[in-house]
């Protein structure tokens, strides 16, 4: 009976991880390596020629950052800026609203009724296909007849219908609104979970000290949910960097409307005339590097500080023990 314990089970660890590893190698690692390779080669045109390194292997990367002939910044940089703008303008109100609602819903003196209902309704837009949402909003903001124009002219806010979809400002504002509208519910639910996790005794102690709502929020809630907030920030940022469906289907991904995001740039470069696979591969790699930088930031934020300290101490202890052992 005792001998059984000596059976080595570790091989099952490898065995059970094999499907994941295989799928990862085939569907993620190989495509990444291939993308990197393509970025330095002659792969372009409807039917690309035999794969060959470019004379100047870096020319695709150089092109991405080279100014246009008109002297304006390159389309790639323009798409990066457009993406960043849309993300930032959507995220600030999204986080603000989510914070406010999570503080309200967890207030221990005023119990908000029908919380479950509100949570379900606020999260609803997130579950609906982004493609559907984009086209729905395109129809809602239709010109000259569309529900929004109908309401605004009926309420005499506007004299004549407004053409929302052909102006960069209104187009971008609506895209930002859609993003915020789809995601604040999700951010709120995450933050509520974080606030509930705070030890209630801390709040009680603060109340005994006479702290009001604002002080409790500012001095207890905010610092306590900071890690989760940062986690949300980074995940949202990476999600925002790959924004595709909404700007493409709501505003045709048009560059002149500020709706050409990086993902749309990559898509257009490879799947529209003149099919520059190498150039879009280079853009993918730049995007990849940006995401790696953000992921590292995420790691740093999410790491368990106490566990890391313990691990360090354990290792130091082990080292010392070994050194002692050798000494003896």
């Amino acid at each position: 009976m005792k001998r059984r314990k000596l059976v080595n089970y570790s091989k099952y660890g490898y065995l059970f991880a094999i499907p994941f590893i295989l799928a990862f190698l085939i569907f993620t690692l190989y495509p990444i390596c291939y993308t990197i390779l393509i970025a330095f080669t002659n792969q372009e045109g409807v039917i690309p020629p035999k794969i060959k390194l470019l004379k100047d292997p870096l020319s695709c990367f150089k092109y991405l950052f080279k100014k246009r002939n008109s002297g304006k910044i390159s389309y790639f940089l323009d798409s990066l800026i457009a993406t960043a703008k849309i993300w930032i303008v959507n995220f600030i109100p999204q986080l603000g609203l989510a914070l406010l609602l999570s503080a309200w819903f967890t207030d221990n003196r005023v119990k908000v009724k029908a919380q479950g209902f509100y949570k379900v309704v606020f999260y609803l837009p997130n579950i609906i296909t982004a493609a559907t949402v984009a086209i729905l909003f395109r129809t809602l903001f239709g010109y000259p007849i569309g529900p929004v124009n109908d309401i605004l002219t009926s309420l005499k806010i506007l004299k004549t219908p407004y053409y929302f979809l052909n102006k960069p400002k209104s187009t971008r504002a609506i895209i930002e609104f859609i993003q915020c509208w789809q995601w604040y519910g999700s951010t709120m639910i995450t933050l509520i979970a974080a606030v509930i996790g705070i030890n209630p005794e801390i709040f009680e102690a603060a109340e005994i000290d006479g702290a009001n709502r604002w002080r409790k929020f500012w001095n207890i809630t905010l610092p306590s949910v900071r890690p989760i907030m940062l986690f949300t920030l980074v995940t949202s940022m990476i999600g925002g960097l790959s924004m595709f469906d909404i700007p493409l289907l709501f505003a045709e991904g048009r560059q002149d409307l500020g709706a050409q995001t990086v993902a749309i740039y990559i898509y257009n470069t490879s799947f529209k005339q003149p099919y520059k696979y190498n150039r879009s591969a280079a853009a993918s790699i730049v995007l990849f590097l940006i995401i790696i930088a953000l992921s590292v930031a995420l790691f740093y934020v999410m790491r368990d500080k106490d566990a890391a300290k313990l691990e360090k101490m354990r290792k130091a202890e082990l080292k010392r023990a070994k050194a002692l052992g050798r000494g003896v």
Partner: peptide, 29 residues
């Protein structure tokens, strides 16, 4: 459930690719 040599590295890998969007691998794929 199992202790295997590369476990930590493997889990690190999972954390690392967790955030990777399809956009990045799309061209090669």
């Amino acid at each position: 459930a199992y202790d295997w040599k590369l476990k930590k590295a493997f889990f690190g890998l999972i954390m690392g690719i967790m955030m990777l969007p399809g956009t990045v691998t799309m061209i090669g794929f």
